[in-house]
Amino acid sequence: MSAFTLPGFDLHAFVAATLAEDLGGGLPGGGHDVTSESVIPADARFSGVMDSRDAIVVCGLPIAAEFFRTLDPAMRIEVLAEEGARVPPGSDLMRLEGNARAMLTAERSALNTVQHLSGIATMTRDYVEAMAGHATLLDTRKTIPGLRLLEKYATRTGGAQNHRMGLWDAAMIKDNHVLVAGGVAEAVRRAKDAGVAEIICEVDRIDQIEPALAAGATWLLLDNMDAAMLREAVALVAGRVPSEASGGVRLDTIAAVAATGVTYVSVGRLTQSAPAADIGLDFTPL
């Protein structure tokens, strides 16, 4: 059994589905690794080392290990870096020893996972450090379908705090909700009357703040405001509810945004645009 657990995430189902996708499970002629089966003897054994070619924040190694264990339960696996550790280029991340076919079949799925999650964690850490202790960094729902729990795990590993996990855990009233309801105050009132405990209300003008608060908003999302307007908004809110700056925040602008006094800064690009880390896996026949 793997020691990696994540609420709501089924590791074994994820690994099985990912391997089945690569192996062509259920497709005519699918269900096997034609290259490894035709080239590599069934009893051949490899040792392998996974290493980073970039400076990264490590994320996803326990998940990667499960791909190899699934195909070779007897494989010897040594994880060499902790989740969330920042490591320099050339760092060894994992050592493996076991069935050669199993390693080759699992290799791409394992690497894809670590590269993607470490890329997210690395970008997240860069944003956190740029904020210099001001505010708290949040992620968003701008995630790849089916990977939200893993991607939000990666942002936590990088030092951010998860915002909404989905549509179920808080109301977030945005411009289209306001448009249909007829105004900020009416949209918030409807959510409050429905018994919603946490009501996040997006505002993009200063004159929307008081109506939203008076109607019962418990959190204000200050959308696409420049630094001067953010400072004005924060002063008006005066700590009555948390304030979140959002919209178009980049690594080169987040320090100024965070320094305005907002409680949070949310950044969609953490999960939407993080580049994959350059991580490789080299094998040696035994």
Rank of each mutant, 00 (worst) to 15 (best):
A3G: 08
P7I: 00
P7Y: 02
P7G: 02
L11I: 04
A17R: 04
T18M: 02
L19E: 03
L23M: 09
G31V: 08
G31A: 03
H32T: 04
T35S: 11
I40A: 08
I40M: 04
A44T: 01
R45A: 10
G48P: 04
D51W: 05
G60R: 06
L61W: 10
D72N: 03
V79M: 14
A85S: 15
A85K: 15
P88Y: 00
L93Y: 06
M94Y: 06
N99A: 13
N99H: 07
A100R: 00
L104N: 13
T105C: 11
L117N: 04
S118F: 00
A121D: 14
R125M: 00
D126Q: 13
M131A: 14
L137E: 09
L138A: 03
D139P: 08
T143E: 01
I144V: 11
I144K: 02
L150E: 09
L150T: 12
L150R: 03
E151I: 00
K152L: 08
T157W: 06
A160I: 09
Q161T: 13
H163G: 05
D169R: 09
V180Y: 06
G183K: 01
E186R: 15
R189M: 12
A197F: 14
A197N: 07
E198F: 14
I199N: 00
I206M: 15
I209K: 03
I209D: 12
A214W: 08
L220Y: 05
L220S: 08
L221C: 07
D226V: 11
A227H: 14
A235F: 11
A238H: 06
V241T: 07
V241Y: 11
R250K: 15
L251M: 04
I254G: 11
A259L: 05
V262M: 09
T263P: 07
V265R: 05
V267N: 04
L281P: 08
F283S: 05
T284S: 05
